[in-house]
Amino acid sequence: MNKKSKIYFTVLFMLLFVSVFIPYALNISFSKKGKFDKYIGESQLHLIKTYETGEVILFYIDQGARAALKQAISNLGLTQTDFNRQKINKTKKRLLPEFQNNFLKITDNFPETKIPIIIDEYEFNLKRKGNSVELLGKYSDILKLEIRTDNKIVFTEAEIIKGERLGYYLLNPSFRETVAIT
């Protein structure tokens, strides 16, 4: 290519670029998500939203454990003396089944989907702290919450719902709740 034709080609190329390529690129950029199929930051947003859902679930579990424990103490009519060193093991045997029933009922009631807690995965530790009783629930497994593009709350154990899944967010539903006793 000689120098004259190179200059003509450059001018022609720039004209073509301004009149064809730029409008084409603008059209693609505004009408679709472009080359990367997703908006920049979209996957991160889904991850952050799943984290937010995880926090809501953990808060619900904490409050649920507290409500379940209070209800169990009230149902069994337990008082401070039942939590004395001599009686606490006997009390634990009565209290835990009642607590577990209440707790499962609460986790089943979570909006959108039930929380797939397996009660046997918990190791419970009950102790008296002054005028209160403390229940520690240590969960030995994890709950797998799906990071989804449709923002549905889906645990892997739950029924599979169509939609894109980006990964898993792991939750440990352990809790420590203290309730005052009379």
């Binding site: 190179k6 080609f9 450059t10 190329f13 730029i22 690129a25 950029s29 472009g34 920049i40």
Partner: peptide
């Protein structure tokens, strides 16, 4: 100069095209 203009034009055009394709929300 002609080489430089053509090379530069293609490079700048490619950068602008990429920015427009990906950068607008």
């Amino acid at each position: 100069l002609a080489d430089f203009l053509l090379g530069g034009a293609i490079l700048i055009a490619a950068i602008i095209f990429f920015i427009i394709m990906t950068g607008f929300t």
